[in-house]
Design a binder for these strands. Structure first.
Lengths: 329, 329
DNA sequence: GCGGGGTCTGTGAACGTTCACAGCGTGTGT
DNA sequence: ACACACGCTGTGAACGTTCACAGACCCCGC
């Protein structure tokens, strides 16, 4: 009934537990005979190493904590990121513990958890500028990386992200190439990398034509896309294209455009960002920018593992996006 | 530099480590004087209990593993479920470890993890009928619950879920009450509770009018919604309503209907299920059935905790859904 | 004054590993 | 013949807790 320990394996194989530990950890210096005897004993007894004991003596946690900030919006992209992270960490026998840092109490909990040595590293997700947790975590002397840049802390928290700015440039260039002349933009919140950098990319291409009149700020939600579009139409009734920094906001813009009697894409072209599940649900389907989410997650984990392995610094990385052309532009 | 241990706290408070352990675990039988001395020492030293040591001696894992099956589709609902679960488990100082069981290798990994005593309980998510993991996990003698019923194992794996059948009934009744006469349905895969039970609820209301001609099966994807709708239109050109078992499939149906020149809702009413983010992105916005995702997750955790605490059986529960009326029906 | 129950405290052993160390053959170079 | 490295193995100590036990103290009733 009791779970077999390393002693049981040693006894079954007729070898000392030290040698069993050695084969468990892939040490060289163990004779072929001993190795196969032990491997058979492990199979027979169904032995599985006790992580608590191992981590206790090794002074490690054996896990990485992924910290979700709680944004007011739903991000369907989380699942891909989580999946990928689990996979990559699993290869190194690290488990992924999830935590939320939505309010102060939760931030305190995360901090205690990390300070208590319960994690070997921290994986930040969608953390916004000024989050108090960032500095305290970094100060705790534990490896911290972020999936997506942390605005204002780009230098201190390594990250992997998609090339937000380049992606926005792709979209802006595409709209221009299709002959659009008055192109507006609905940005994300300006304390997020997606909010700031997608606007930068837009401005890179449009130059002085990206006037303040043509810019509205949203908060990633459908509703904010609707109202931003309404304001833009009021200010610039003859605009012929709009680039929303997310598909969800683009779908909001579509609603407003339809209500105003504008045809898409004939009168107004609409571009989105993310290539989320919403992109193909709208009418017309959205031309959008796809992020390589799996790759971004994989790279983020790679950075974290490097830090855990002792690297004293690693370089952040931006991965290229791709333009997905559908009917809206 | 080194993390303070219980010995350091004991020394700082001038009390033995046994007593420190007692206040840590809320034992009665500790004098007020000792308690405050120790509490101050804990605060001063910044002591946090070492979970590995604690769990080692307690023979527990201190965590619950959430197992994601890998379905071919994206489920934006995961995040809500994960969030809620983390919250409730956190209150009991249990951490949430995520694992994926998409292929055999991963299932093996989950099994080893659980068999190795690395988890105190298992939280299944979106597991489909016939998943080999279910029986082996249950056989491992560890508490297992599921968020959403596991088809074919309802009796052995306790679960919390929304009232799928009742929700479908709500939608069907609503369509009938609006005067619709030829109502078709696009179901989910018939090895999932959402696939089976939503069809049952539909049949409950329509009775013999729910003929085979009016039923098509999808796989939750947008594309499957499109093709299912096309087949239905071919078979029953004069249908005046369609109920899709998910919003995503409903959005696929909308595309096909539009391409066929049908107006929604004038010619054909469309109903969805989930009230996901796509429900408000479509044109027209979807009338749909909302699941109380947070409550479902909370109840699932409650069941799991009860089992972990030693209950030998708990009762599964179904939570009521609500009809969200928008423009599509 | 004594037994006994309740409250509180300290101590030793255990949990299952890893790691450093010491030891033992066996072969190899001098 | 001797030293020495090399490959391999066993052993004891440690990691930081909890838990059972034993004992000290105090109060109460007789």
């Amino acid at each position: 009934m009791k779970r077999p320990t390393i002693h049981d394996v040693a006894a079954a194989a007729g070898i000392s537990r030290g040698t069993v530990s050695r084969v468990l950890n892939g040490d060289r210096y163990v004779s072929p005979a001993a190795r196969i005897a032990i491997e058979r004993a492990i199979a027979e007894t169904g032995y599985v190493v006790n992580r608590n004991a191992r981590n206790l003596v090794r002074q490690r946690a054996g896990s990485v904590v992924m910290v979700l900030s709680e944004p007011p919006f739903e991000d369907p992209n989380y699942t891909t990121t989580i999946r990928t992270a689990i996979r990559r960490l699993g290869e190194r026998d690290l488990s992924l513990v999830m935590m939320i840092a939505g309010d102060d109490r939760e931030r305190e909990q995360v901090l205690r958890y990390v300070r208590g040595g319960h994690a070997d590293g921290v994986f930040l997700l969608s953390t916004h500028a000024g989050d108090p947790l960032v500095d305290t975590l970094h100060g705790a002397g534990i490896p911290v990386v972020s999936c997506g840049a942390v605005i204002g802390r780009e230098a201190v928290i390594p990250y992997a992200a998609c090339d937000e700015r380049g992606g926005a440039r792709q979209m802006a260039e595409y709209l221009v190439s299709r002959g659009r002349r008055k192109i507006a933009m609905i940005t994300g919140p300006m304390d997020t990398p997606g909010g700031i950098q997608r606007l930068e990319g837009f401005a890179d291409v449009l130059g002085r034509k990206a006037s303040k009149k043509l810019i509205e700020h949203g908060d990633w939600t459908h509703a904010s896309g609707e109202t931003a579009m309404a304001r833009l139409l009021e200010r610039v009734p003859d605009l012929d294209a709009v680039f929303a920094a997310s598909d969800v906001m683009a779908s909001g813009a579509l609603h407003t455009l339809r209500a105003a009697g504008r045809r898409v894409p004939e009168d107004v072209a609409v571009g989105g960002f993310d290539d989320s599940s919403v992109a193909i649900s709208t009418h017309p389907p959205l031309t959008t920018v796809r992020q390589p989410l799996g790759d971004v997650a994989r790279e983020t984990v790679r950075l974290l593992l490097a830090l855990i392995d002792g690297a004293d610094r690693v370089d952040s990385i931006a991965l290229p996006t791709s333009l997905i052309v559908r009917d809206s532009a």
